[in-house]
Design a binder for these strands. Structure first.
Lengths: 336, 336
DNA sequence: AAAACGCACGTTTACGATCACAGAAAATTG
DNA sequence: CAATTTTCTGTGATCGTAAACGTGCGTTTT
């Protein structure tokens, strides 16, 4: 195909004006049956395809949204992306994906996309970018924050209750009889990590367990970081009998570390993760973890944004997504 | 901010024509120093942001490309996506991500995006969509196929040599002393799967090993499928001493199946995977596998597409990406 | 029968930038 | 200093669609 017919070509062929051709194709009910079919036939016979760029310019709407993710090869984000994408598709939006790598330069260049009207709004899973979000607000770009919300809740937000995460874990472990429980935390510049730490301390206190500060070590959310942190815990005079890890990757690292010291999970040490990534179920032992409904989180975030774009108002409350603990094979009562 | 200044506002402020303002911002060297700074100052002072939609309409270029992926929560694709995205970003393109789920309806709706000029080209990792690709060709949309190439190589293509995959695996296992080797294959409607089967048979024949047809079973590329396939192999009168699995997920499933039968890997059975997903290295035992440079594959595909968009010609040869076998802990000489 | 209404459609312009063309101003040359 | 080139800038057309607005005509209302 060499020449791309435009709407005016179609109109000419059908013997109507451009306006009528436009209406016949986009708002069929505004047009008489006969002209409607005439226009449609003309469009089909010449292989007409609407030019969405032109429509966007005229309507001041691109029907695409920008999604900013810190990293994608992380086991955690892909399912959220899936939820976002499928919902976007159902709502008639395309998804532009930006990987920020927590890199300020990249973030700024992605901002260009929304500021220059190439996207109608954005979803940010990278709460570290508070400055980005501020600028987003400044330009009145509809924005939804997901999970990591460093910008506070001045923006529409979909997240889980990270204190509840810790509470559920502590409740489970204390219920099994553990008293000496450690926490392998996430990166300290993350609000999620600090909330989980606070929640852990609070829940432990509520259960009447003392938490020595040595029992909270940073695992940086990674497999290797979790393993290193676990080794430090095992080197203590009185090691913990159970460990609450801030995510599944560090939990698996912790399990690996136990093994290198000849300890069995869960017989000698209980380990709990957070996220419930796919690998958690197939891991050996299967990981007891906090399930986050990642797909649904994506769907809800996209719904929220779409509403925001269309009505530009929102109820000032963050959407809190329910979570639950999934008991698998990595936790058991402590030995005596 | 309530009003968005346009180029004509900037021009008015700077006391020049719109054309000059456009040149000053987009082609600064075509304009006198003094007017250049005048225009820039005006743009800055009123917070001007270019409208990329308008530019796209005029230039008939969107600077965005469509990437079609069958599924994203698959451990395999995210790293490719990362390569694609980062390269796209460096080249000045945005990436629109479409998840097809191998669903014909979705595929067609994504085609709309390129046909309606919202993207300058597309990258297809979902070779199952031969009809899609055909239409892509029909509309002269620059397209690059990656890995799974059901449409043949009439299109620009970036892939690995799947027969070589099988050859490397067989060479490794035969080198260890194995003679009775099985293959847990991928879904039969995939060209990649059939090529690996053919390569397996060829390499085995070349090594002087007979391959009974029972020794090739379908594992559907999944963990559970791999486990089920392995159980079938272990139920044979004379089970294989080594298994070549079509991907890492099915290899891990196979290992799990061995364990449920009380067999140890690699002492009793050797297992090889393909892909080298992150989990392969942390798996217990660490998986011997064929490494695919997924990030680089993404980068190369994006480079190829960008070239295609700009020059619209290509050397008629598929880009073959080099691969190699990584020996880890899941393979060993057979017992006697 | 006159007034009021509403449907279906055409005319025209807006959307916001870029580019070809041509003219004006400045710089260079002999 | 006139002639020529070079540099710079404005005019107006253009990209393809949507929508505001207006028109003609048939139908209903009193």
């Amino acid at each position: 195909m060499t020449y791309r017919p435009t709407l005016s070509d179609v109109a000419k062929m059908a013997g109507v004006s451009v306006a009528t051709a436009s209406r016949a194709l986009s708002n069929p009910d505004l047009v008489a049956e006969s002209t409607r079919t005439a226009v449609r036939d003309a469009a089909n016979s010449c292989g007409y395809q609407i030019n969405l760029v032109a429509r966007s310019l005229r309507k001041q709407r691109t029907n695409s949204i920008l999604v900013l993710i810190p990293e994608i090869d992380n086991q955690f984000y892909p399912t959220i992306i899936k939820g976002l994408e499928q919902r976007a598709h159902n709502l008639g939006y395309s998804m532009i994906l930006g990987l920020t790598s927590n890199n300020l330069l990249r973030e700024n260049s992605y901002l260009e996309i929304v500021n220059s009207r190439r996207a109608d709004g954005m979803i940010v899973l990278d709460g570290g970018l508070d400055n980005l979000i501020e600028r987003g607000i400044k330009f009145n770009v509809p924005t939804v924050q997901v999970l990591e919300c460093l910008g506070g809740e001045s923006l529409p937000t979909v997240r889980i209750d990270d204190r509840q995460v810790a509470a559920l874990v502590v409740e489970h472990l204390v219920g099994l009889g553990h008293r000496r429980i450690a926490h392998i935390s996430g990166s300290s510049n993350s609000l999620v990590a600090t909330e989980r730490i606070a929640g852990f301390q609070h829940a432990m206190a509520a259960a009447g367990c003392h938490v020595h500060s040595e029992l909270i070590v940073n695992g940086g959310y990674t497999h290797d970081g979790g393993a290193a942190a676990m080794l430090r815990l095992l080197d203590m005079n009185e090691p913990p009998t159970a460990v609450f890890c801030a995510n599944d990757a560090s939990a698996m690292g912790a399990i690996r570390a136990c093994r290198t010291r000849g300890l069995r999970v869960p017989q000698d040490v209980s380990i709990v993760g957070v996220d419930d990534i796919d690998e958690a179920a197939t891991n050996d032992p299967p990981l007891t973890t906090i399930h986050q409904p990642r797909y649904e989180i994506g769907v809800m975030a996209m719904d929220l944004l779409a509403g925001l774009i269309e009505t530009s108002n929102w109820k000032q409350k963050p959407v809190l997504v329910p979570i639950n603990l999934i008991e698998r094979g990595s936790t058991a009562p402590p030995r005596h």
